[in-house]
Design a protein around this nucleic acid. Structure first.
Lengths: 203, 203
DNA sequence: ATAATTGTTGCATCTCGTGCAAATTTTCTC
DNA sequence: GAGAAAATTTGCACGAGATGCAACAATTAT
């Protein structure tokens, strides 16, 4: 990777982190783009070269596309062949994608703080989740051999993202085994969905 | 209802309808608050007495709280006692709540147009759905005797709202039997959820 | 080293959104 | 009904968000 690209990434990260830090400290409405830019050592105009809005900077690190490699495997029917199993593997890999575990967990905790302090950001976050939902639906359809816009797959994807949201709410921030814990919660959520919407269909 | 309240409702409606019409005609970014206010015959300042943002005006008629009476019955375990049955009754009653059928269907079709033309509005719409989801979770918890913040109820509510979104996508705008059609789609969606997440648990 | 490409910055400008006080309209009381 | 009281609308000033454009600076390519 060239110097240019590395610098751009660094600037983007600096802007995002400054935005988050200042917002957690003083509240979003008290934090101006000017202040964020100053903290990241760029001009205010440059801020808008990176982000369309102030909110965009705060939510920039929210994953909204599944992990490419894992998606591939999932679409092909793997890795285990058991739907809910492979689904949670895909979700966990995508949500806690890059970076080391410690960093990812810190990001997740920080996002909870952000949402608690600035509820106005929630719609934006839900919008990101919706993007993920779209890709997910497509992956599920591909795996089951259905057309790309298959309604069942779309619904399954939406419910899966609901399970993700719920699981994220439930796993405590300072949990030791972040990933395994999240995977367990997901499995539990899937089971709950089955129980609630298919109550005892035994013969 | 006094003259004062009636006038306020009329103004609010006029502003919303002007905002929607102008946006569908010219696109949201080309429509200023000044233009909307002029079309509704009030001053620009008055617009902001009714809505905090331009987007708020466009989404003002999106239901974000369940119908009070039906919620009551649902929480008490009625009307039929069958969970998915009563749930879809609550949802349909809440989403197509007040006003005559024709109007409601027109609103729904118009909202689809809005979302198609202005995808930026989607997060806002999802935010409204999320509010509905919260109330719904509370109602489900109440019905099942669980504490108000019961995770299972929250998950069920989220999945139910996913089913609602999916069903709305599927029912055609010019359908004759709007309500019944929607109810059928909901039932089908619930069944799908059961099938996907509880695959053949027979002994 | 020099040219070409890409990113940054300052400036002008438009619009959003809010606080405040004056003017207007509706409602209440006698 | 007339006038006081309450609520709503409006104009004005102002800070900040967001964008287009052209000059400037830094990186990359030749």
């Amino acid at each position: 990777m060239g110097l240019r690209e590395r610098k751009k990434l660094a600037t983007r990260r600096a802007l995002r982190e400054a935005a988050v830090r200042l917002t957690l400290e003083h509240g979003l409405e008290k934090v101006t783009v000017e202040a964020i830019s100053a903290a990241a050592d760029v001009s205010p105009r440059t801020f808008f070269n990176y982000f369309a809005t102030k909110e965009d900077a705060l939510l920039d690190d929210v994953t909204s596309v599944p992990d490419e490699a894992v998606r591939e495997a999932f679409a092909a029917g793997g890795p285990t062949g058991v739907f809910v199993e492979d689904l949670s593997a895909l979700l966990v890999a995508s949500l806690l994608g890059s970076g080391d575990l410690e960093t990812r967990r810190a990001d997740m905790a920080q996002r909870k703080l952000l949402m608690a302090r600035e509820p106005h950001l929630l719609p934006g976050l839900l919008g990101r989740f919706h993007s993920m939902e779209l890709s997910l639906a497509s992956a599920i359809a591909e795996r089951s051999g259905a057309p790309d816009d298959d309604p069942r797959s779309q619904l399954a994807a939406a419910a899966a993202m609901s399970a993700v949201r719920q699981s994220m709410k439930m796993v405590p921030d300072q949990s030791e085994a972040g990933i395994d814990e999240l995977k367990d919660r997901l499995a539990e959520s899937f089971r709950t969905l089955g129980e609630v919407f298919a109550p005892e269909t035994d013969a």
